[in-house]
């Protein structure tokens, strides 16, 4: 009996890699937040990494592992350079919106038009608190308020 290769493990791992890659593709196509687009791109890289390691396991070869290490390196470089560009874009427009730069689009691509969105009723979050003990400190009026949403 062959004790080296495992085709079911390869197929299952390749399926997981394909799902991660497809989800990342959908994310990068649809989302408009620049940071979420980069997260989706990193997710595609994760899918590729899983597939490469699965093939490496199947063949008993080191090539996939070595390639994934270089994928990690390139991902780190990409994140550094891309985040600098995102920060520059944010400081110019004040938004993390990809559509804020739609004047750079191709001539035959339609313009992204923002419709008025219905207001959402924001329920203030209730964070868990400890039972107060000791003397209550005096409240500081100048203290900045905590953000209710992130």
């Amino acid at each position: 009996m062959n004790t080296m290769q495992s085709l079911p493990l390869l197929q299952n791992a390749l399926t997981v890699g394909a799902i991660l890659f497809s989800l990342g593709l959908v994310g990068i196509l649809t989302r408009r937040n620049l940071i979420v687009m980069f997260l989706a791109a990193e997710m595609m890289l994760q899918g590729i990494s899983v597939s490469l390691v699965a093939w490496s396991r199947y063949h008993g070869d080191w090539g996939g592992h070595v390639l994934v290490i270089f994928v990690l390196t390139v991902a780190a470089c990409e994140a550094a350079v891309a985040l600098v560009f995102v920060l520059q874009a944010f400081s110019r427009t004040g938004r993390l919106d990809a559509a804020a730069w739609q004047s750079l689009r191709e001539a035959n691509v339609g313009r992204t038009i923002d419709h008025e969105l219905p207001a959402i009723d924001t329920v203030p979050l209730r964070f868990p608190t400890l039972t107060p003990a000791g003397v209550l400190p005096p409240a500081d009026e100048n203290e900045p308020l905590q953000r209710e949403h992130v």
Binding site: L87, L117, T122, V150
Partner: peptide, 18 residues
Amino acid sequence: VLMLAQPAGLAPYDRVSN
């Protein structure tokens, strides 16, 4: 970067998608 650049609350461009 998110904490530096994210406005409080949901931005309109986070509530729609292309």
